[in-house]
Nucleic acid binder design. Structure first.
Lengths: 351, 351
DNA sequence: CTGAAAGCGCTTACAG
DNA sequence: CTGAAAGCGCTTACAG
């Protein structure tokens, strides 16, 4: 059911710049220029070419174009473990913003592991224009390779090893926010559930908390590791609850661990926030589920994505720009998992 | 810090087939053939070429190769709404299986909407080798375009409009499984929470349930729409609970709605499974959270992915193979959200 | 067993 | 304002 207007098509059966040029009676160069709006082409031929291209259903071959322009139009993305809904939300928005700037995302890797040289091979194979990395690190060899190629690269929520840009939530300030809320709620025995030990995000959130506690002459009432998973958070809370005296509040380095902690607390016959307050970090969807109503520090996802795209775009235009680190403040979301002091300031953000 | 072995590189600075050929003292054709293990090349030169390529850090340019072979090595994927963890799990495995067969996934779209011609443009631009679609449909024009191009395409959990392959969970049988369990548990007033109205998955699951009820001379004790979301499930359950007499069991067309339903039931001061049993579909992670322990029909994700990759691979090799539909039975996961009859068969799968 | 030539579908100096 | 030519980095008949 081939359209008869497609008769002079290439071997592939699809119209090419040559097909168009023949129909239009101009050279391929002119077609190419007309299609990209080169000002040197007369409005008349531009319109004619455009019309024919449209009518033939012409779509430029990105590989052929990329081969000569050295810009493939593809941007690599590596995602954290999708068990954490945070990354799902992130990639969804990342995708649309990338498409808006005419780039297409190719999935390089999913899961939090460190990327070796093998994993980043497609970057060179496909001559990617750039790369966005969330929640993963590059092996030093891989990082070096990217640096040598001056690959524009932005890491979200991870500190860059070299040369690249970083956009993150201000984790330290977020940790302070959490600590301050807990103290205002008159908690004195605050415990912390850490994420993966090797991540700066967890460390920074903890440091922020510690700073606030220190100012109040307090120390951590407990600390356990939750590996950034629900099960980890559950187990960590159980461990924390075994202490005597037990903590009266728990700050988890991310929401999903906080959810696990809440379930562990309840399974132990205790109430949230009556017996213990719990606060998380991220503001993922399940945080709003009626059973949890978790108070948390929301990561400014929208802003983080916007900045990431900006940094990336700038560097795709000028690869020699130097690395930049941007940190954006998170926002407290007051829900019901933290016992609130009477007359607490009403800057509470509705769920 | 350029490696001195890279001195004879192309304009891009990267070694090309020509670089290698010069160093090896053979023709580019020979390099090309040696690298892909063409049997006509002597073992000696093959080894020599391989060594040099390795030492130069050579990676073939996929665009150049794709241009001539007409196989880009990229496979498009479109994902459902990532708010539902089911798709996160799916894409994670899909990605690794694709990489295993030497294909790289490019993200075409995320979210359940119908795809128009614009959305699938990258398929042609990048001359994709195939496409995997989950939880979305193509507009008829888009479907026609794909069909005309003989694009190998497999839809997961959606019925194909034309020409393509489909892999799905046996939703009808799954619905029956759910119904049978509920009846064995001596429920007589079973209500259903539908997903999006326009999806065959929800319809089929409902039909399976209805079939079982009918055999037992029963009809649906209630029906509401939950749009496949937590909030939708929550609201739907509230609606269902308002009926008098109220249902004694709820089957939700997916897990995330079932979770919402459980929370609504509890918020109404009722117990699960003491006052109402709840059963879901999918077996997503939060289903195992201690607060829920949701009994559900697990989609056979592993098998579905395996079959999808097979169907796709076959069609990438022989584009003229006809469309095929594969349906795989799901498996009951007995947890604690359904009241069990005394002495219930012990084929219970541990969580 | 290997090489020279042509070509995939574009773009881009270079001419005019 | 437009065209002819060269070339991006590969592969693949076609020769030998």
């Amino acid at each position: 059911m081939a359209d008869k207007s497609e008769q002079s098509a290439a071997a592939s059966g699809l119209p090419t710049v040559r097909t168009i040029s023949e129909v239009a009676g101009v050279s391929p160069s002119t077609v190419s220029r007309a299609l990209k709006g080169d000002p040197r082409i007369s409005e008349k031929t531009r319109a004619a070419v455009a019309a024919i291209a449209q009518q033939q259903g012409y779509t430029p071959n990105a590989m052929a174009r990329g081969l000569v322009t050295r810009s493939s139009g593809v941007v690599g993305i590596v995602l954290g473990n999708l068990e954490n809904p945070f990354y799902g939300e992130l990639v969804e928005r990342l995708h649309s913003r990338l498409v808006e700037i005419g780039k297409y995302p190719m999935l390089l890797h999913i899961g939090g592991e460190t990327l070796d040289s093998e994993a980043i091979k497609p970057i060179r194979q496909y001559q990617m224009d750039g790369c966005i990395i969330t929640a993963a690190r590059l092996s030093s060899r891989a990082a070096e390779t990217c640096a040598n190629h001056r690959l524009p690269m932005v890491m979200i929520n991870r500190v860059a090893r070299i040369h690249s840009c970083t956009v993150s939530c201000d984790n330290y300030a977020g940790g302070m926010l959490a600590g301050e809320l807990l103290l205002e709620a008159e908690h004195r025995r605050v415990a912390f559930i850490a994420g993966r030990e090797d991540t700066s995000t967890s460390e920074d959130r903890e440091s922020g908390l510690l700073c606030v506690l220190r100012k109040a002459q307090l120390t951590l009432a407990g600390r356990a590791r939750g590996h950034y998973t629900y099960d980890g958070g559950f187990a960590a809370a159980q461990e924390l609850l075994a202490a005597d005296p037990r903590p009266d509040a728990i700050f988890a380095a991310n929401d999903i661990m906080a959810l696990g902690a809440i379930d562990a607390i309840r399974e132990a016959g205790l109430g949230v926030p009556d017996d213990l307050s719990v606060i998380g970090f991220d503001d993922i969807r399940p945080t709003r589920w009626h059973n949890y109503r978790l108070t948390t520090i929301a990561q400014p996802v929208e802003a983080m994505i916007t900045r990431s795209i900006e940094l990336l775009s700038e560097r795709m235009a000028s690869p020699d720009l130097s690395g930049e680190s941007i940190s954006i403040k998170g926002e407290m979301k007051l829900r019901e998992s933290v016992r609130l002091p009477a007359g607490f300031p009403a800057n509470a953000s509705p769920a």
